[in-house]
Amino acid sequence: MTAETVAQLCAASKRRGAVLALDGVDLAIARGEVYALLGPNGAGKTTAISLLLGLLRPDSGEVRLFGLPPEHLAARRRIGVMLQSAGLPDTLRVGELIAQVRSYYPQPRSLADVAALAGIETLLNVRYARLSGGQQRRVQFALAVCGRPDLLFLDEPTVGMDTESRVQFWKTIRELVTGGCAVVLTTHYLEEAEALAHRVGVLAQGRLLAEGSLDTIRARVSQRQIRCISTLTAEQVQAWPLVHSVQREGDWLRIVTPQPEPVLRELFAADAQVRDLEVQRAGLAEALQTIAREAA
């Protein structure tokens, strides 16, 4: 483990009931990087986060947070946490909630700084129950950053935020990362991972199927997609070389191929009336589906 590693799972396995929720997973988060953990529900994301946070202990393997066991207070004083469900006390005011979590840290940010960072300056005297869903999420973010963490855990952070708040939120995260803060992010919004992550880990059925930069992950999928309006039938097109699959959706024809150029030549030759043509590289979503399919 290098000095720059802030959090690490080493061959970590964890059984939850009858299911092997995590099966020998190795991963390491470096200082100042945003690591997005992706995968379908039940893939083991929550279990992985819970191990890193010390909420669960691995059945085998090892977990390290800043080189220490995660239940160690000295390690946890360097992290900030935003979980999916927070259930903060309804009757306390926002300022009181921040004061409470600030008191856990040796050198917390000032209340004014925290409020500015999370954009909740006007809400400090409001009781938590009176806030909208998006405002509550921002308060939870304020609690996560109030201790000047070196590592931030964000579990589905922008659920319930509108598009504008989400973009503002991403901007704030990037500023924190520029300041040297590492982030472990789990999200269902792939554009969130594409907007923030330096590296992506793909979990499915408890195993880490792929890991690397966004480009590396996207490159795992060589397929391109051709969409056009054409009178050709799916059966005709399927018979061409290099065609992986064909689907008709109303007027539209959707052709998936590893190599679009020869297929396009065939297409123009067979149908002079073809129109509204699009060729797309697979996005992160297609990449994840392909990786999951290959593993199954």
């Binding site: 010390g54 004083r77 992290i79 946490v81 979980l83 259930g87 903060l88 856990y104």
Partner: peptide, 19 residues
């Protein structure tokens, strides 16, 4: 009971709350 249910206990444990 309700703090366990709503996930607040887990959040407190994940944060560096003194034991």
């Amino acid at each position: 009971a309700s703090e366990r249910d709503k996930g607040l206990l887990a959040l407190r444990r994940a944060l560096p709350m003194p034991p």
